[in-house]
């Protein structure tokens, strides 16, 4: 049993790498998506809404498969780690779009009115008044998205990325101890989620003081 520990620790590192990269890509897509959905241009709003609808309305696993297995057909050759990260990142970005947009929209309308009344432009208002307030409010819900994202990295196991779930399955086969393998990888997932959760809470608390 002891011989498997190093493999699981390595796999945990891969899971962490996947999580970080996916989160960064997701936040980027989320910010772009939110900006698109709130744009003055109808075409951008439509693109944003379609992005959210399609990527939230279909299974993430299928999105991974389309990119990894189907990509070569349209000239996109990616290794499994990259394909998985990109597909999952764009997927979680659709959820983060709604989280970010929700936070921005929840800032009281009177704030915008006051800023515009003083003569500030739309962008100045967004930049100095609305976004600072929205940013504070979106930390917790984004934390929920990130929590789901960390567990979602398991979806790259079927395309053979050597992360925690893949490793668990691999060793279930050779050790015939599924419960132990489940518990080991489960524990590592929970540690990662716990640490990240604390980070989010800390960030949230700091944001409220400023």
């Amino acid at each position: 049993m002891l011989r498997v520990y190093p493999f699981f620790l390595e796999a945990a590192v891969v899971t962490i790498e996947l999580s970080v990269l996916t989160a960064l890509l997701g936040l980027t897509c989320g910010a772009l998506g939110a900006a698109a959905r709130m744009s003055r241009l109808t075409i951008l709003r439509w693109i944003g809404a379609t992005y959210v609808s399609l990527w939230r309305g279909t299974p993430a696993l299928i999105q991974v498969f389309i990119l990894y297995f189907g990509g070569p057909q349209i000239g996109i050759q990616l290794d499994s780690f990259a394909a998985g990260t990109i597909a999952l990142g764009v997927n979680i970005g659709a959820y983060m779009t709604e989280t970010i947009r929700g936070a921005i929209v929840s800032v009281d309308k009177g704030q915008t009115e006051a800023a515009r009344t003083l003569g500030m432009s739309r962008w100045q208002t967004m930049h100095k008044v609305v976004l600072p307030q929205a940013a504070r409010m979106m930390i917790r819900p984004l934390g929920v998205n990130i929590n789901a994202l960390i567990k979602g990295t398991a979806l790259v196991a079927p395309i053979s990325v050597v992360e925690l779930t893949y490793t668990a399955q691999r060793f279930i086969g050779s050790t015939y101890k599924p419960f132990e393998m489940f518990l080991l990888s489960g524990l590592l997932y929970m540690v990662i989620i716990y640490v990240v959760g604390h980070g989010i809470n800390w960030l949230d608390r700091r944001a409220r003081i400023i």
Binding site: G152, A154, L155, A157, L164, T165, S185, Y189, M190
Partner: peptide
């Protein structure tokens, strides 16, 4: 923990 892990 991930659903996939639970299915396994």
């Amino acid at each position: 923990t991930p659903l996939l892990l639970q299915l396994f």
